[in-house]
């Protein structure tokens, strides 16, 4: 699944570690999600959406 996590993070000048701390996950998890190699669960996707104040479909896209 593709996502805009890296772009959104860069816009806020956050490192992967910063984002990981805000989401209460490991930096490795953030990296895996950003590279599209790990799809987050629905609860984590909602946490990400809330953090960036965006709807889920504005961050993740199917395919």
């Amino acid at each position: 699944m593709k996502n805009r996590l890296k772009v959104l993070r860069a816009e806020r000048d956050w490192s992967q570690a910063d984002l990981a701390r805000r989401l209460e996950v490991s930096r490795q998890s953030v990296n895996a999600i950003e590279t599209g190699k790990y799809d987050p669960s629905l609860p984590l996707a909602f946490r990400i959406a809330r953090l960036f104040a965006l709807p889920i479909e504005a961050i993740f896209e199917d395919g």
Binding site: Q28, S29, I33, L44
Partner: peptide, 10 residues
């Protein structure tokens, strides 16, 4: 286990 995030659990 409770301290692990979901990717680590996976």
């Amino acid at each position: 286990w409770r301290g692990l995030d979901e990717a680590a659990r996976e």
